[in-house]
Design a protein around this nucleic acid. Sequence first.
DNA 1: AGAGGTACCTGGCAGC
DNA 2: TGCTGCCAGGTACCTC
Length: 271
Amino acid sequence: MPELPEVETTCRGIEPHLAGTRVHHVTVRQKQLRWPVPGALAREIAGAQIRQVTRRAKYLLIGTSQGTLIIHLGMSGSLRIVDDSEAPGKHDHIDLHFGDSRLLRYTDPRRFGAWLWCTQPVEQHPLLAALGPEPLGDSFHGDYLFHQSRGRKLAIKSFIMDSHILAGVGNIYANEALFRAGIHPLRAAGRISRARHAVLADAIRDVLEAAIHQGGTTLRDFLNSEGKPGYFRQSLEVYGRTSDPCPRCGTPIREIRSGQRSTFYCPRCQR
DNA sequence: AGAGGTACCTGGCAGC
DNA sequence: TGCTGCCAGGTACCTC
């Protein structure tokens, strides 16, 4: 469920609770996530002072005095601040205790997420080192997309979802950005003009910022760190709207598969 | 090197 | 009602 706006929403939601506090201990009830939760984590994070909570792509980075906790929410993960009197549910796999009555609780039914521990400079971690630029950062712009895409025959939708090209653009927002930019999702990335790449880069930035502003998109069950849903769903123009009229021209929205992912577009507006 | 497919895991839902 | 099969927001890794 969580794409970049949902991770950013989570990051902003938990940061005020975490920054400056000390980790007391960690309870791991289920260590079998995407990768096993490292045994060193519980041992080495105990007593650490939390310095800041940041985000890189869809990874949450909890910087401490003793190392960086890397958290990925996968497809169904969420983090909440809860009181320790609240009994853990079936999918509440990890608790980060702060020594008072509060804790950070990680819930993840599908267990596609990750909790990793890094004592090196975190930007050198193998999962982060090869990532493309942040779509909301200064180094991302149309010319970057244009140059990266020369000679590539890959569908533009798969191209912008490749984390080595661009970090953190998932299926929902790839669909929405391509609609806003008027680009057909199957068009070869290398056969899109410089001008249209500029429009696309702006569209990606705009749709992500709008989603963050509305607290992310809740499809089935995404809840932010306060347990509330996001409200961007009602702003989705093509995602999940098969056969609905295109908001711009009225033509029925079409659904196809691209790279094994559901792909939605307006056959008239997107070329 | 690039492109496409597979795997991880569970829950929800459509269809029978 | 109950079963089966399919689908899902991610992404590293495998093969061709």
